[in-house]
Design a protein around this nucleic acid. Sequence first.
DNA 1: TCCGGTGAGTTCCTTCAAGGAACTTAGTTG
DNA 2: CAACTAAGTTCCTTGAAGGAACTCACCGGA
Lengths: 161, 161
Amino acid sequence: MACSIARTLDVIGEPWSPLILRNVYVGISRFDQIQQSLDISRKVLAERLKWLVENDVLERREYSSRPPRHEYTLTAKGMELCDLLLVMVRWGDRWTAGEAGPPVLYRHHACGEISHVELHCSVCDRRMGAADVDVLPGPGAEPPAPSPDQAGTDRYEHAGP
Amino acid sequence: MACSIARTLDVIGEPWSPLILRNVYVGISRFDQIQQSLDISRKVLAERLKWLVENDVLERREYSSRPPRHEYTLTAKGMELCDLLLVMVRWGDRWTAGEAGPPVLYRHHACGEISHVELHCSVCDRRMGAADVDVLPGPGAEPPAPSPDQAGTDRYEHAGP
DNA sequence: TCCGGTGAGTTCCTTCAAGGAACTTAGTTG
DNA sequence: CAACTAAGTTCCTTGAAGGAACTCACCGGA
């Protein structure tokens, strides 16, 4: 599918993957640890881990050869997916916060302060959210329906983000 | 669940929701439009829309009373979820881009440039990704297991982000 | 006035994936 | 040798997704 969102969802679209990723991110990196922490079926966990490794989001590392023991670590690709988690956390904290406040806090290495993420424009560095942009077709957009059997129908392909 | 990611996923965790949201975001806002554009089952679409409306992500507006016609629009809560989509798009473009380049581009209203989102620290405004933070337990974190029947087990609750 | 068309869903059935529990394998400790 | 742990597999059952057809309200044209 041409849509970048669909391509991202293809990798981490089903609901367990972000949670698995998050566990690996905070250091819960072994099979049984993850399984117990999430209360996920072992079968599904094995499938998801395999998929994430195949898609180069996680790496399966042997940290002991006898007995053979493995852990999962984030690749660079996977670490950038964790950025997505930070944005999810921010939204969850803002809009679905429990009574008690956010369950975790993030301290920014650079400034040492407890903080959260904001979206900024890569060009001008000012704030840039979904409400602050126009959406335009890009180079990878689908061509505008080269063989319309009936001209005049208002059926045109949408350019997926 | 205490984890903010899980709470966010509870709202838009299954794979169709982000795509539905994205369609509404770009102006594909009516039932049949969305259904055809995504090729989603009408049943599942009706369920998802109902859920998103119940969770105050979308609003169901009647834009014509006779005949009764409806469209779905984003609430403020939903618009902020679209920020998440921008980050997804960015990741998809970076890591799973097709040959042809990104299918859509975003022009920032403030500077007029084609751009993409970056994550910045809300305190110091510098870049802040998942690799740039420490994770600490927050006020809503689970208390450290008040009634351990056996002291000494290395079983402690994880604080979910 | 009746006919077909459209938007917005329901209903029903079939298939696929998730969940759960038990089993496997390799090696290690007592 | 028996029990134990980590890391999966295998098998079965239930729940959700997909698909096609049906409903309902209304409209516009012959």
